[in-house]
Amino acid sequence: MTDHQREQNAMTVTVPPSSPDSASGDVHGPGRADFFGALAWIGLGLAILVGSIGMDRLEAQDVNPYTIPGLLPGLLGIAMMILGSLLALRSWRRGLDRPSCPDTGRRGAEIKHLALVLALCLTYGVLLVGHGLPFWLASALFVSTTIPLLQGPQRRATGQKLTLRTVALSAVIGLGAGGMITLVFQKIFLVHLP
């Protein structure tokens, strides 16, 4: 970050892209992504509005017409459509031909890495946990598989190989994490685990 950028950050009170809560802010500029995002917001707003209008007004229960359940969701749908239209207009005026994200080699690697992380997390959260397998075992399996799979590409990039020692260490960390979480949450703090 340059001094000038720092100065701007300090004066405009914004969270810089490097901060965790704004991590990966839109570093490539708005471009087409904002326009398509805006269309999605308008679509969502319209769907909410249609859903709210079609919602039961509880006339059979003789409720006050000002308290119908679809009132606020309908207004929120309209708000989303207005704000989405403003976003679409702004991105249109800024130009749609600007690419939203340069397709570099690093980005390709990042997408592969992200797909791997997502697949691992979803497998654990949707398939392994809560379907009969003990929590400690499911967790141990997840951690001991994830660590070598994530470290593999990093090691390859630096010319190192994934050793048997790393795999064994990952298994120990996995068993330790699964066992400790079960012990602390279930046995000490009496929290029910999946």
Binding site: L120, C121, Y124, G125, V129, G130, S139, F142, V143, T146, I147, L150, I173, A177, G178, I181, F185, V191, H192, L193, P194
Partner: peptide
Amino acid sequence: LMPIIFLLCTVGAFA
């Protein structure tokens, strides 16, 4: 660290 944090997130959401 992150896989272990994910385990905690799963427990945190469920508990």
